[in-house]
Write a protein that binds this DNA or RNA. Structure first.
Lengths: 143, 143
DNA sequence: GGGTTTATTGATAATGAATATCATTATTGT
DNA sequence: ACAATAATGATATTCATTATCAATAAACCC
């Protein structure tokens, strides 16, 4: 049964913070786990709505934010477009190649770049915590 | 006289595109050139307003956008905060270290990282056009 | 179980930045 | 100077995000 571990972690975080586990939280988390990798609040809301039309937009939004706070999801903002959320748990850190034409996200990772970033920060008396690397251009189909 | 070259370039772009050189454009460009490196529309509007209260917010906004289209300035968006604009002309490409505490921007550049990024893109059948690297953490003062 | 506390929900309003609208003004080429 | 039309300035609109608040429902205690 996929996602069981993630659900337990989320549930645990909720209890730790003195929050409550609700039916909506579970539904939204499940939908998020089985949805596309990069999803907006609106998209997830529309998925949830199909089976649970009583669940509101604000609740989906709030719970995606909560998942981020719990370290379970990550919010990605590109320019002025809607925020996208992706599952963080169980996924290594990665950067994105973003197609300027079709908007496709390609996940990539490069150990050398990661290390050089740390070095670069340290050379500037800067303590790195996290970073964001986005390479914009054209994917195979669109170039 | 600093900025003369930039002004000529901007003026040239305007003519090329069939647009018009106006008093406001020149005032806004001058203010932009002598202002802080990373400035918001609002900040630039407030500077301009001091000497030229008749110039509106929308005009400042439009002209900053135009400067970007002309390749003279660059828009930087961090999270949900207001867009910042920086002078691109005469400045090498660079990335940013951003302090999570005080918001300070430190400009950095690393040739090795730049090259690895191009390589990384190509390995993924991706044609890179531009990129954005932001390293978040704590600056010397705030760590 | 029943009662109490209070976090959560759902609907909607508020917010805030970015952008669009439009009548008026001003620039450019003739 | 004239005509064509881009630009301006004030304001309205858009749109995503976040806040509000009465009603609901978890979770804890007895």
């Amino acid at each position: 049964m996929p996602g069981v571990e993630v659900k337990e972690i989320f549930s645990g975080h909720i209890k730790e913070k003195g929050l409550r586990n609700t039916r909506q939280r579970e539904i939204i988390l499940e939908a998020f786990l089985s949805a596309n990798k990069h999803i907006t609040v609106e998209d997830l809301f529309n998925i949830v709505k199909k089976k649970h039309p009583e669940i509101g937009y604000a609740t989906v939004h709030r719970n995606l934010k909560l998942m981020c706070e719990s370290g379970l999801a990550e919010e990605i903002k590109i320019g002025t477009s809607k925020a996208k959320f992706e599952l963080k748990y169980g996924h290594e850190h990665h950067d994105h190649l973003i197609c300027l034409n079709c908007g496709k996200f390609i996940e990539v990772n490069d150990e050398k770049i990661e290390k050089l970033q740390v070095k670069l920060a340290e050379e500037n008396d800067f303590q790195p915590v996290r970073h964001k690397l986005e390479i914009y251009g054209f994917c195979k189909k669109c170039r």
